[in-house]
């Protein structure tokens, strides 16, 4: 496999291989917290932060502890525990410095732990055999990609509030259709660069 520069991976993770729209990871909070741009942005930032930190930490742990001792099969547990710890830390941080964001994010803040995008990124970087730098850029890129999409969706949904939508499609229905169309749009980027 040819070597991709971290920068390439960074941009690829945002646009061509967006974690949300091409892999459909992290849909749960994407559907629920995309009602307001402000909160969506807050959650997006939190996810980006967690993704970047955890991809770095998980990389270190995997290659310094798990692999040398031959216990790679433990990676699922170890990764998720580490993610949980980082999220806890983040939760304290937000509670201290922005009570409004803390209440708006509510349960979705601790639930970042089980946001599949986070574990997904950590597992992808192992499978794709990225270097440390590549991994960190991949994590940060994926997070920014997630942020971009959820903010875009929140923008659309804020406008949808004033539109007449058939009752059966209101809520999750219309959001899923929109994310499908958005996904098709993002597929358009995929000719530029390919990461697996």
């Amino acid at each position: 496999m040819e070597y991709l520069s971290p920068i390439t991976i960074f941009f690829a993770a945002i646009f061509t291989s967006n974690i949300l729209l091409t892999y459909f990871l992290g849909m749960c909070s994407f559907l629920s917290v995309s009602k307001q741009i402000k909160t969506a942005f807050g959650l997006g930032l939190a996810v980006t932060f967690v993704l970047t930190i955890t991809s770095a930490l998980n990389y270190i742990i995997y290659y310094t502890l798990l692999q040398p001792f031959g216990i790679e099969y433990l990676r699922y547990i170890v990764f998720i525990v580490l993610v949980a710890a980082v999220v806890q830390l983040l939760e304290m941080f937000i509670q201290r410095f922005s009570e409004v964001l803390y209440i708006n994010l509510g349960i979705f803040l601790p639930l970042i732990t089980v946001n599949c995008a986070i574990l997904g990124v950590s597992l992808f970087m192992i499978i794709r055999e990225y270097t440390f730098l590549q991994s960190v850029f991949f994590g940060a890129g994926s997070g920014l990609g997630w942020l971009l999409v959820i903010v875009a969706m929140a923008g659309i949904r804020e406008r949808l509030n004033e539109q007449k939508i058939p009752p059966a499609l209101r809520g999750a229905g219309i959001v899923l259709i929109i994310s499908g169309i958005m996904a098709m749009g993002f597929v358009g980027f995929s000719g530029i660069v390919q990461i697996q």
């Binding site: 629920s32 209440i103 979705f108």
Partner: peptide, 9 residues
Amino acid sequence: MKQTPGEQQ
């Protein structure tokens, strides 16, 4: 099952 904060309350 994941629950929104409202649901929990």
